[in-house]
Amino acid sequence: MSINLEQVGRIARLAHIEISPTEAAQTNQLLNGILGLIEQLQSVDTTGIAPMAHAQDVAQRLREDGVTEKDQRESFQAVAPETEAGLYLVPRVIE
């Protein structure tokens, strides 16, 4: 399976990464190389095999309910690109 330029554009939009037309062409070629590598997976019969999503076959450990975090807004917002009145600012959101 290989992908075309249009699909590269669609994936880049989903991933929110701007891609120029020249980059897209080059990326398309490289991605098809990688897809050629992972294509080998199709050759295996995995009927009846349960997918393995985790490296451990154990159940999730849960946390007791309780507030353990204190206000650290100042230190967290010290590294923020833009804040005002305790809020993170972004270009206008239109719903």
């Binding site: 946390r63 309910d65 309780g66 507030v67 353990t68 975090e69 206000d71 650290q72 807004r73 967290f76 917002q77 009145a85 305790g86 809020l87 993170y88």
Partner: peptide
Amino acid sequence: SSKIFSGASTAFGAAPNVQAC
């Protein structure tokens, strides 16, 4: 009393982002 995946408080009405850990 705390969030689903963190120990921050869920109380309503706090100043912006003081309950965001």
